[in-house]
Design a protein around this nucleic acid. Structure first.
Length: 423
DNA sequence: TCTGGGGTCCTTAATCTA
DNA sequence: TCTGTAGATTAAGGACCC
């Protein structure tokens, strides 16, 4: 371990590899003074929720996703179903072939969101900073809680116990000096696992792992690594950064290079809100009839608008997604001058994109619509309050500024005064 | 072989604007 | 006022995640 540690430090302290890390703020390599980040992952969340509510499903293979005989994939498979080789994203036809006797269920997102909220509320009583990474995952900054709650292992054990007691669900927890190690730790022993990786063990922990375990490494990038003959994290460490950059681009190369040495962000950021709302649907059979497509789009636009209004959001960007036969996918988007959460406006804009988007004239497999670009993300358009030319009275200017402040309240970004030349 | 739904982020190209 | 250009913004698509 010492050899590895020294080699890392020497690489980072001199020469090229350090360049990549220098581009990032909030990036840490494991050091003597470090944070403790915990990652919590609910085990087979959707199917566990169903098994909890239906005791008759316990011990049986359960698959949440499309129903057999329909288009779709597996969204979640219980551990009993996984024994048959069923996993998420597998076509439902394949899943039902592998295990015809499994319980197949459609997802009940409302139920899962309700249980998820309950768990997040519980987590917030256990750590000062909690970040929801998805419906079934969270990062917690547990640094400095040792005096209060005990060792990282005790804290992890406590998290697991309290969630089990409150919901009957098991979770896997990983704890380490940054987000990457915490996340890989929670994946290390599943289900119902607990893994703590102290900073001095990070390099040994990562070395034998397949590179496929790293964050942001999907099928396409795996092909590249395979071509380069890189299978494990230890092998990845030997590849100079410029060579990675040649094959993966600067950003991805830097990310994988840093990950290989256990370097990652240790910042946990609580709820930052969603950035878009979208709804899409796949037809049972491909559709060539515009009237049917328009009708589907109307329903989707209504759902998007309803969600947006419910969450108090309005977007300036309307996006259309179309997938044709053969899985050929296109997107078109339009930025409006004013934000909207009105279903008629969303529908009208999306349909215009469909008609004007120079899309292939082929049967449609999937259609979807979404909005993004919230009002608060956009620089506010300047509203001009004209003052009489002769106005020199500071008191009157202040009153005008007060009036503007009153009108715009929290949306106000900046108040300024400029001279109109009159030309 | 068959590939859902709802997201995020990145890269690249085209277009706009100062 | 005109023109070339750099930087910002918008748009599209790809990759990835759960």
């Amino acid at each position: 371990m010492c050899v590895l540690e020294y080699s890392v430090n020497s690489l980072l302290d001199s020469g090229t590899p350090a360049r990549a890390t220098d581009r990032y703020t909030h990036m840490t390599r494991p050091q003597p003074t470090h944070r403790w980040i915990a990652h919590m992952d609910l085990d087979a969340f959707f199917t566990s929720c169903e098994q909890r509510e239906h005791p008759e499903y316990q011990g049986r293979p359960v698959v949440v996703g499309a129903l057999p005989g329909h288009r779709g994939v597996v969204a979640a498979a219980s551990y009993e179903a996984r024994k048959f080789g069923i996993h998420s994203a597998m076509p439902i036809s394949e899943a039902s072939r592998r295990c015809p006797d499994a319980v197949f269920l459609r997802p009940d997102m409302e139920k899962y969101r309700r249980i998820s909220r309950q768990i997040f509320q519980l987590l917030e009583t256990m750590a000062p900073v909690v970040e929801a990474a998805s419906i079934d995952e969270a990062y917690l900054d547990v640094s400095g809680l040792e005096k209060l709650l005990g060792s990282p292992a005790t804290i992890g054990h406590d998290i697991k116990q309290r969630i089990l007691a409150a919901t009957g669900l098991t979770v896997s927890v990983g704890i380490g000096p940054n987000r990457l190690i915490a996340k890989l730790g929670s994946e290390y022993h599943k289900p119902d696992g607990l893994t703590v990786v102290p900073p001095e063990q990070v390099l040994d922990f990562l070395a034998p792992m397949p590179v496929a375990n790293l964050r942001g490494l999907g099928r396409q990038t795996q092909k590249v690594f395979k071509r380069l003959g890189i299978r494990t994290v230890e092998q990845l460490r030997t590849v100079p950064l410029p060579r990675l950059e040649q094959h993966l681009g600067n950003k991805a190369a830097a990310s994988f290079h840093n990950q290989a040495f256990g370097i990652a962000s240790d910042q946990v950021m609580p709820g930052q809100g969603r950035k878009s709302i979208s709804k899409e649907t796949t037809f049972e059979a491909d559709i060539g009839d515009n009237a049917i497509l328009h009708d589907a789009l109307r329903r989707l636009a209504a759902e998007v608008a309803s969600t947006a209004r419910h969450e108090g959001l309005a977007g300036t960007v309307v996006a259309l997604k179309i997938r044709f036969e053969g899985f050929e996918t296109h997107t078109r988007q339009h930025k409006r001058r004013t934000p909207t959460c009105d279903e008629r406006t969303i529908l009208k804009t999306a349909w215009q994109l469909f008609l004007d988007g120079k899309l292939p004239k082929k049967p449609v497999r999937l259609i979807g619509v979404g909005i993004s670009g919230w009002e608060q993300d956009q620089p506010a358009q300047a509203d001009l309050f004209e003052l009489p030319d002769h106005q020199q009275d500071n008191q009157q200017l202040l009153q005008t500024i007060d009036a503007v402040t009153e009108k715009f309240g929290k949306h106000l970004l900046q108040v300024g005064i400029s001279r109109k030349t009159g030309k």
